Computed example of a mutant assay.
Amino acid sequence: LNPGDEVIIPAPYWVTYPELVKYSGATPVIIETDEIGKFKITPEQLKAAITSKTKMLILTSPSNPTGSVYSRDELEALSEVLKGTDIMVASDEMYEKLVYDVDFVATASISEDMYHRTVTINGLSKSAAMTGWRFGYLATPDKELIAAMNKLQSQSTSNINSITQKAAIPALLGEVDQEIESMRRAFEARADEAVELFNAIDGLSVLKPQGAFYLFVNIKDISNDSIQFCKELLQATGVAVVPGIGFGSEGYFRFSFATDISSIREGIRRIEKFVKNKKC
């Protein structure tokens, strides 16, 4: 990326992406999404955002923070818009193993055209519960791009430590797939219960996530200042959630269900009490 280049980023987005674009001297172009569209961009929105300066589209599926997952039909429709352009796609697929009632579809698998324009970003932090080990990787058929990234990586963070590499082998070989599926089922059960509990709270609402392990809870009937809401919630109840504005969408907070069901129930109970007090 160079100064003047533009990168299209659907919101809500993972917090790092706009800052990385700005750090590179380029300009993030944010496309707003909503609950009606399950927080996914449409081909029409993508087409309207493209200019002669557009260099990249960043897609996250499954999404952190919303849990939305693009279907094959949706990705095919977006790929049609990109045909005939030189726009790259950075596809963040970190949560690919954690999907619920939908099939995960890799962006690069859509077509030969998408294969050649896509850089797939993945890792073992989520699927294999190796968060602190920082094992990430990417894939692209563009060998020149890989060579350039290798130069930068080798002079900045060097490499993944040897202990982490050894620990990652069973996950990469599929030897822990059974454990991953067990974890996925547990996450799905937690999501189902948490969604039901949140939607029973007057003033709050949430869509069931299709993937990842977060809920993006709508608080617009209670507050349009998610930072203040989350600050007051933490001070009053000890429950920590992340303001939606940090992900580019005001009027929401992100709730993680990557913990035991008892903690989830207690956390939502405290949130319910807090919301009732705010409505009084």
Rank of each mutant, 00 (worst) to 15 (best):
residue 198 F to M: 07
residue 184 R to G: 11
residue 223 S to Y: 11
residue 171 A to K: 05
residue 48 A to N: 14
residue 64 N to G: 05
residue 104 F to T: 06
residue 149 M to A: 15
residue 223 S to D: 13
residue 128 A to V: 04
residue 165 Q to H: 01
residue 41 I to K: 05
residue 50 I to H: 00
residue 279 K to V: 07
residue 33 T to D: 03
residue 167 A to R: 15
residue 75 L to K: 02
residue 38 K to L: 04
residue 58 I to D: 10
residue 131 T to A: 14
residue 280 C to G: 06
residue 130 M to S: 06
residue 175 E to F: 10
residue 22 K to I: 04
residue 40 K to N: 01
residue 91 S to Q: 05
residue 204 L to F: 00
residue 107 T to F: 03
residue 98 L to S: 00
residue 227 I to Q: 05
residue 214 Y to Q: 12
residue 271 I to Y: 07
residue 194 A to P: 05
residue 41 I to N: 03
residue 210 Q to D: 13
residue 221 D to C: 01
residue 26 A to C: 02
residue 202 D to H: 03
residue 261 I to H: 02
residue 262 S to G: 06
residue 203 G to L: 04
residue 270 R to V: 00
residue 77 A to M: 08
residue 55 K to D: 10
residue 12 P to G: 00
residue 258 A to I: 03
residue 247 F to Q: 06
residue 259 T to N: 08
residue 134 R to N: 05
residue 27 T to K: 13
residue 202 D to A: 03
residue 269 R to D: 11
residue 80 E to R: 07
residue 121 I to S: 04
residue 242 V to E: 00
residue 83 K to M: 06
residue 41 I to L: 06
residue 44 E to C: 01
residue 248 G to Y: 09
residue 132 G to F: 08
residue 140 T to N: 07
residue 225 D to H: 02
residue 64 N to C: 12
residue 271 I to A: 10
residue 183 M to L: 13
residue 183 M to I: 03
residue 196 E to T: 15
residue 93 E to S: 12
residue 271 I to H: 07
residue 182 S to Y: 09
residue 103 D to T: 15
residue 240 A to H: 11
residue 202 D to R: 09
residue 154 S to D: 00
residue 177 D to S: 07
residue 205 S to Q: 07
residue 258 A to S: 09
residue 113 D to Q: 14
residue 233 L to P: 06
residue 24 S to L: 12
residue 192 D to S: 10
residue 110 I to M: 10
residue 90 A to I: 15
residue 242 V to G: 00
residue 174 G to V: 11
